[in-house]
């Protein structure tokens, strides 16, 4: 009798699971439960601390290399990092090597600079998309203007106040690469290891375990992983955003998946051995 019921549980139509997942996620979006933990991972804390220690006026390259497919995870990271940079009065140069990122960058910088009364050209600049990232990264080592002589609107980059005294990697205090691709690897290899530029990465949760060796060897100064990394960074800068609200839904979804795995494993053990 019990075994028949357990067999029925294991053969449940997977569409019921999809429906349950949809209900759980939608429920959390409509009625947030406030399940956010204030425990910050070591790698997010390191990223925050490194940027926090930079003196005002330092030039930071923000390499935003994600497209709409990974934006739910990475856009909150970009928003949080940009907010932190502007709150510390850092100068920001935005670059991208993902063609799909251009509209998302516009969206981030149509919101964040205004919150801190930052002005385009004086406090930050957005450069156009460049194909062949490795060639661009190599060129920037000797002369940034060799690859970025104009900003996204076609203005002469040299004439912008934000680019004052910026010539190559020697004048760059930090690179933050938020990417749904392997761009952090390129920044570590062609800017970090080769020219000593500190690099922080923000990556999708899928890619996060692969960056452990770079963290252990301090080739990366910090790492934000997925939506959890974004939520942690938002907590550190005391500005809750999309990452924080998303964690509520994710936590519930994880509980549901864990419960399903446990229940089905118990069922299999009973069916096989009892």
């Amino acid at each position: 009798m019990l075994k028949d019921k357990l067999n029925a549980v294991l053969k449940i139509d997977r569409r019921w699971i999809f429906l349950a997942l949809a209900v759980v996620l939608f429920g959390a979006i409509m009625h947030p439960l406030g399940l956010i933990s204030n425990k910050i991972s070591r790698d997010t804390q390191s990223a925050y601390d490194f940027m926090n220690k930079l003196p005002a006026g330092s030039f930071v390259i923000l390499s935003l290399d994600y497209d709409p497919a990974t934006s739910p995870e990475l856009n909150p990271q970009a928003m949080a990092v940009a907010r932190h940079a502007f709150s510390k009065d850092l100068r920001v140069g935005v670059v991208t090597y993902a063609a799909g990122a251009t509209a998302l960058i516009e969206k981030v910088f149509s919101v964040v600079p205004g919150e801190f009364k930052k002005e385009y050209g004086r406090d930050y600049v957005i450069f156009p998309y460049q194909p062949n990232a490795v060639a661009a990264l190599t060129q920037m080592a000797s002369d940034i203007y060799g690859i970025y002589d104009k900003d996204k609107d076609g203005k002469d980059a040299r004439s912008l106040p934000v680019m004052k005294e910026i010539k190559n990697y020697k004048n760059v205090s930090l690179v933050v690469c938020i990417a749904g691709t392997s761009m952090p690897d390129a920044w570590v290899a062609y800017a970090g290891d080769k020219y000593g530029v500190p690099v922080i990465a923000g990556v999708t949760a899928i890619s996060q375990p692969g960056y452990g060796p770079y963290l252990q060897k301090k080739q990366l100064k910090g790492l934000l992983g997925g939506m959890k990394g974004a939520a942690e960074y938002e907590y550190l800068i005391k500005t809750p955003g999309e990452g924080t609200s998303g964690m509520d839904a994710l936590s519930l979804a994880h509980v549901m998946v864990a419960a399903l795995i446990i229940v089905s494993n118990i069922a299999i053990v009973i069916l096989k051995y009892l």
């Binding site: 996620l25 939608f26 739910p72 949760a205 899928i206 992983g225 997925g226 994710l250 979804a253």
Partner: peptide, 23 residues
Amino acid sequence: GAAFGNTVMARFSLLYGRFDKLY
């Protein structure tokens, strides 16, 4: 195992992103 766990989290993040927009 760690990579798979993170993959699940990433996929849910993407799903959450679309649901958030649908909402």
